[in-house]
Amino acid sequence: MDWGAIFSNAAVELISPTTAAYALAALGLAVHFGYTGLLNFGQAGFMALGAYGYAISILTFGFPVWGAFLVGVGASVIFALILGIPTLRLRADYLAIVTIAAAEIVRLLFTTNTYASVTGSANGLSGYKNEFAALNPLADGTYGFGPFTNNAYDTWLRIVAWSIVILAALLVWQIMRSPWGRVIKGIREDEDAVRALGKNVYAYKMQSLIFGGVLGTIAGMIFALPRAVVPSNYQTTLTFFIYAILLLGGAATVLGPIIGSMIFWVLLSFFSGFVARAVEAGWLPFMTSIQGGQLRFILVGVAIMLIVIFRPQGVFGNKKELAFVR
């Protein structure tokens, strides 16, 4: 068994753009769920809007990178408004159902053959990376060391992705220790109490939904840059994975989502690599390699349950400030 390859493949995930994208999406969810207590189950929808908004702007309309970025962000602001206006006055579980439904609507609209000329239907879109690559200041060649060696484009992508994650984390950290963040956390605890103190709870919840949603949208763009945009990537399962990361790291923390994403991807990659090779080596005779691939989803599901039951504050959360909405 090639342990070296398993470990180095797992290590690659530590700083991969996908890990960064999940970290950012989880950070957005931390704003929603951990800090405000909003049950957003449509983060996959926000991510899809980012990915498609970016790709379509470039492919169909020939926008520059910043223009495509703004289109994605704008789309997610509108999406947040559509979601929030009917549901933010209602009980928390209604928001859960509406967001999950809305994210599916978004995915189905991107999947349907009706708009195939723009969305590429089930095949999705590709070929939108040149504009981003053109901004790369790095000369051709390889950068980094060991498992973290990448070509110029991949290095550039990693630098941009993680810079955005760090920037977003600082932003969330700063805003959550401001009076605005205090109101937001108050709403999580008891929105009627905050309303009775003269705060426009509805507006704050809407701002939080937009803020976290925009983080999810930017995550969607980062997620799309190393691969093609395919609608089946944006299923509800994606949202559940991000919840798993958030719960792993701690819902009401800034570092939690980031470290959570790293742990999640490194472990997942290590596990897949190990199982795949174990199957090849005949250690697991009762399992095919396809089954090995499915095993990890089973594990993620079990992990979600165990974390919520036994360590609801996550790895980094404060036991006292465990972030569950009642």
């Binding site: 579980d93 594990l299 993620v300 349950m305 919520v308 609801p312 569950f324 909405v325």
Partner: peptide, 15 residues
């Protein structure tokens, strides 16, 4: 509480 319960059911569903 009901929200953690709901998340447990999501994990269960996935598994």
């Amino acid at each position: 509480a009901v929200i953690p319960l709901m998340i447990v059911s999501i994990g269960l569903s996935l598994a």
